[in-house]
Amino acid sequence: MKPIALVVHGGCGVMSPEGLPAADWEEARQALAAALRAGWSVLAAGGRALDAVEAAVVVLEDSPQFNAGHGAALNAEGEHELDSSIMEGGARLAGAVIGVRRIRNPVRAARAVLDGGQVVALAGPAADRFAEARGLAMVEPGYFTTERRRENLVAMQARGAAGTVAAASEAEKHGTVGAVALDGDGHLAAATSTGGYTNKPPGRVGDSPIVGAGTYALDGVCGVSGTGQGEAFIRHALAHDVACRMAYRGDALETATAGVIADLTPPGTGAGLIALDAAGRVAAPFNTGGMFRGWVTPQGDAYVATHAEVFPLGRLDTA
């Protein structure tokens, strides 16, 4: 069996250590660890990378600590519009849902779109109906709302009125979750999910459900999931650009991932990403104060981090 590896993220941003209580930082790290264990259990049992990234992202969507699923951001009208995509790097199959409101785990709906094989993306009420018809768990929109997100919306709208939006913390604005996996057959897969950013215009679509922008996987090269200012990721086709730099220019994973972030415009665009190459090497660069992230090496050694400090979790089962 070839090497297996997994990396996850829960968004990047300014992330001042004082911005959240210590208990929330710890809960976020625990959720990252749970996501790693969920995805790794699939890979260690000989499962597919596609199943592993779906399993990992479901855990993060279910955690109120991240802006995806339960705990997603509210738009300017106080509503949720959730986006997700998933891709496998062999046949380059992909699926996405955009602006959904009732699907408990949007990544599962994105996977169902991929498995359906007819389209790559479904949007709005049609995507909700599609998921319900396929027996996915559906919820009332209020399920996604947390008190923190209500407070974020009030704060962002107040900043808008005062003209101080630029001073908002990342916690007030946006976030994303994602996973990338390499399985024992050498296949790569990536998935991304988000609630967008707080106080976004209704109908806004970011990079997370756009294949090639926020999510991309290509066997033999790399898998990528991004987080940051989605409009810039779309304009730069960021996730696809990582693969191109590696496949066409021969860049190593670390060089390619650092390069796409450095080249984003305008200067100062907040961004981060996670990536794996075909050998299971991990990259998780970011240009902000921190990024929720975790990874498992081909040897089974697991780690989580939010800022510079990395917390080892020990070795996960590889049998």
Rank of each mutant, 00 (worst) to 15 (best):
P3V: 00
V7T: 06
V8A: 03
H9W: 01
G13Y: 00
P17D: 00
L20H: 00
L20D: 01
E27R: 03
A28Y: 00
A28T: 00
A31K: 01
L32Q: 02
R37I: 12
A38V: 09
G47K: 12
E54M: 05
A55M: 03
A56E: 05
V57G: 10
V57N: 09
V57T: 05
V58G: 07
V58S: 10
V59S: 06
V59N: 12
L60P: 10
S63G: 07
S63I: 03
N67G: 15
G71Q: 12
A72F: 04
A73C: 12
E79S: 15
E81K: 06
S84L: 06
S84M: 15
S85T: 09
S85I: 02
A94H: 08
G95N: 02
V97W: 05
R102T: 14
R102P: 06
P106W: 08
V107E: 04
R108I: 02
A112M: 14
A112T: 07
G116N: 11
L122T: 04
G124W: 03
A126T: 02
D128P: 08
F130D: 08
E132W: 13
M138L: 12
V139C: 02
G142T: 04
Y143K: 03
T146K: 02
L153T: 04
A158F: 01
G160Q: 15
G160E: 14
G160T: 08
G160F: 08
A161G: 09
A161V: 11
T164R: 12
V165A: 15
A171L: 09
K173Q: 13
K173E: 10
D183Q: 11
D185P: 07
A189L: 14
A191L: 10
T192R: 06
S193D: 07
T194D: 07
G195S: 09
G195P: 11
G203C: 05
D207H: 07
S208F: 04
P209Q: 05
I210P: 13
V211D: 14
G212I: 05
A213G: 07
G214F: 04
G214T: 06
D219R: 02
G220E: 12
G220Y: 11
V221D: 10
C222G: 12
V224G: 09
S225Y: 10
G226R: 01
T227C: 10
G228T: 08
Q229T: 07
G230H: 09
I234K: 04
R235E: 11
M246D: 14
L253P: 15
E254I: 00
D263W: 14
P266V: 06
T269I: 07
A271V: 06
A271D: 02
L276P: 08
A278N: 03
F292G: 01
P298N: 08
P298Y: 12
Q299F: 01
A302L: 02
V304M: 00
A305L: 01
E309P: 02
E309A: 02
G314E: 01
L316E: 03
T318E: 13
T318P: 00
A319C: 10
